[in-house]
Design a protein around this nucleic acid. Structure first.
Length: 665
DNA sequence: GCGGATCAC
DNA sequence: TATGGTGATCCGC
């Protein structure tokens, strides 16, 4: 930015940071990266010429392949609100206008207005340094409800241009404006102008836009004339290549500080074009997928597909506090986090079987410790129980942060959210009314990526066809079959009566099939709404030792049994004969050997999974299998590794309707 | 599957 | 006085 004395800013930041634990850790990290760069440089220097020429051939071929996927027929627009949180705060308090202001607190700033930026104040800068740079700086605490409200207003505008627009965060979105350009016979630039002024009319906020043939480029473009400006990159291969040739790699989404340093330090790469020139080295030094990504960046490709709906894969909660090594205090913090996480999970109707403990030591070193359980958990008691074991192994330790994350969800869409406001989304989706409040809890700076998708995902249980009217779904309705979610949903969350009623209802269904499993237990299968459910008719299956503990035999006990029962295939179900002998291999482990039993059952689980994977698809016979007409989409789960996912054969002649050329080229 | 790391916002 | 929280992904075991 103009008028910023970068040197002075750097000096202040250094003076304020120097000697702190944070700073020391940063130095350690930097030293480590320097070492890594040195190592890679040595490797690069030792690559035999023969290998390099081989890699060059590979690269040439790959570039041709990538080039063939170039898509110039779509027009993408990336909208980015200008200093969003700060702008919203100014809107609600006009006295702030014209004054340097930052949203956040003394320890961290999430964004600053343009007046503050002139002083070098930036997002992700600690407040006390910002205040040093700009003593007049006004601090305003974050208010996500407010930002969400304004975000929804902007999204209502976006919707008029692309009903399937992709919200990237509260203040950013990607729109495919190909159709609207065609229909109205106007250019992307004109659409961008109009959209921006409509956003301003609706919200009083300004935004910047980038128009380009793909999302990767559109994102870069929206940054060029910020704030309150736009930049259009025409759908012309030459224009793209010219644009890319001088573009610093750091501008590309996905290339951060470290990658930039590595590419520059090892191969002297500064611009995207140099990615192509050093292609053979990239292939030699990086993994296939990373090299592929770099090459496509060099070609200016990325983000022309219409991605599948995205599903949340984890949920977490973490807190920073003043560093302590007081074990009792640490356990208390852990309990608090477990409580918060559990509450969030229940709001979202989620259960998961992998629990990850995150620790940040007083010296800023980050550690994670994870455990994958056989059962799905969501109660704070369960979370705390396993989290405590993980923490215990790290003691004694001095910590400044504790976090917990749960992943490996059971994708249990049976769980209706406990929070009744959640239902408004269903209403919203069906009515298509974007003015309805969508995001009801917004408690982070930037975790809202596709918030909506997560919600949609969960809600689909109630109305399996709402994806037709779901404006925020990322993808093709045929690819994102919501029923698929039910696929692995054998964990019946115990948390509310509604679910139990559903289970009960299913149990009374007339058409049912009996299945006798290897352990001799008979279960009934009951189809309902085209989905086959398993119900437990016989509870002779032993619960996990922990759950035989009287402490656990509360309201959850009966269904916790279900969870474990459901989650494994009935065939080969492990239980402890007479509470000491493994039903599968005869190994003997008394119930007090809790950890050993867990390990043991993990072993059998792994064994079984291996068998499942290698063997013919015997799953078709198993009760877990969902039986619905839409089965052909079950495979939706595979994920692409990178950004470019071109559609073969859809390559169209350049510039079919894009007439406006950009004078900058 | 785990743990460390990077990245985005 | 003081350097965040949430989520995704990748790599190398």
């Amino acid at each position: 930015m103009d008028g910023v004395d970068k040197e002075k800013v750097q000096r202040v930041v250094y003076e304020m940071s120097k000697g702190s634990k944070y700073f020391e850790n940063e130095e350690r990290k930097e030293a480590f990266i320097r070492q890594k760069i040195e190592h890679m440089r040595a490797r690069a220097a030792k690559i035999p010429a023969a290998d390099l020429s081989h890699y060059q051939k590979v690269v040439d071929k790959r570039i041709l392949e990538l080039e063939a996927t170039r898509e110039l027929s779509r027009i993408w627009l990336h909208v980015d609100m200008d200093a969003f949180y700060a702008a919203v705060e100014t809107l609600s308090n006009p006295l702030l206008k014209g004054k340097p202001m930052a949203v956040g607190g003394m320890s961290m700033i999430s964004t600053a207005n343009y007046e503050a930026r002139k002083f070098g104040v930036r997002a992700a800068m600690p407040g006390f340094i910002a205040r040093k740079l700009c003593p007049e700086l006004i601090f305003v605490p974050t208010d996500f409800e407010k930002y969400t409200h304004y975000s929804n207003l902007t999204r209502k505008v976006f919707q008029n241009y692309d009903p399937n627009f992709m919200a990237a965060s509260l203040d950013e979105a990607y729109l495919d404006i190909t159709e609207v350009c065609k229909e109205r016979g106007i250019s992307g630039a004109e659409i961008a102008e109009e959209l921006r002024s409509r956003v301003h009319e609706e919200t009083g906020l300004t935004c910047s836009a980038g128009v380009a043939p793909n999302r990767l480029l559109a994102k870069v473009c929206s940054d060029i004339n910020k704030p309150n400006g736009q930049f259009v990159l025409p759908n012309d291969r030459m224009a793209v290549m010219t644009f890319i040739s001088s573009l610093p790699i750091r501008k590309i989404g996905g290339i951060g500080k470290v990658t930039e340093n590595i590419l520059r330090g090892v191969l002297g790469i500064n611009t995207c074009e140099e990615m192509l020139r050093k292609g053979s080295f990239l292939c030699a030094l990086f993994s296939h997928s990373t090299a592929d990504f770099f090459l496509s960046v060099g070609l200016g490709l990325g983000g022309t597909d219409t991605p599948e709906a995205r599903f949340r894969k984890s949920i977490s909660s973490e807190r920073t506090f003043s560093a302590t090594q007081d074990t009792a205090l640490l356990y208390q913090k852990l309990a608090d986090i477990a409580e918060m996480l559990s509450a969030d999970m229940q709001k979202e109707g989620l259960c998961g079987r992998t629990l990850t403990l995150k620790l940040k030591t007083a010296s800023f070193e980050v550690r994670t410790r994870a455990v994958t359980l056989q059962k799905y958990i969501c109660s704070s008691d369960d979370i705390l129980k396993y989290a405590s074991r993980l923490l215990k192994a790290e003691l004694p330790i001095s910590l400044r942060l504790i976090g917990l994350r749960v992943s490996h969800f059971n994708e249990d869409k049976v769980g209706v959210p406990v929070d009744p406001t959640q239902k408004t989304l269903t209403t919203f989706l069906i009515s298509g009314d974007a003015s309805t409040k969508i995001v009801d809890d917004q408690s982070s700076f930037g975790s809202d990526l596709s918030n909506l998708h997560f919600r949609n995902d969960r809600e689909t249980v109630f109305s399996v066809d709402i994806h037709e009217t779901c404006h925020y779904e990322f993808g093709d309705p045929f690819k994102s079959n919501p029923l698929q979610d039910v696929d692995d949903n054998n964990c019946i969350s115990s948390e509310n009566a509604w679910e139990m009623e559903q289970i009960h209802e299913l149990s009374s269904n007339k058409t049912e099939a009996m299945v006798k499993t290897a352990d001799g237990v008979v279960h009934t299968l009951k189809p309902s709404n085209g989905v086959l459910w398993v119900s437990e008719e016989d509870s002779s299956v032993q619960k996990e030792p922990e759950d035989s503990n009287p402490d656990r035999l509360n309201k959850e006990a009966s269904t916790l049994g279900n969870e474990e029962f459901f989650l494994s295939n009935h065939i080969e179900q492990l239980y402890w004969v007479n509470d000491y002998r493994c039903s599968l291999c005869g190994a003997e482990l008394p119930s007090s050997f809790v950890e050993e039993r867990q390990e043991h059952s993990d072993f059998h689980l792994a064994e079984r999974l291996q068998k499942e994977e290698s063997g013919a698809d015997s799953r078709a016979m198993m009760p877990r299998q969902r039986i619905v007409p839409q089965d052909h989409v079950v495979n939706q789960r595979r994920r692409k590794k990178h950004k470019s996912s071109p559609r073969q054969g859809r390559h169209l002649p350049i510039d079919s309707f894009f007439v406006k050329s950009n004078q900058n080229f």
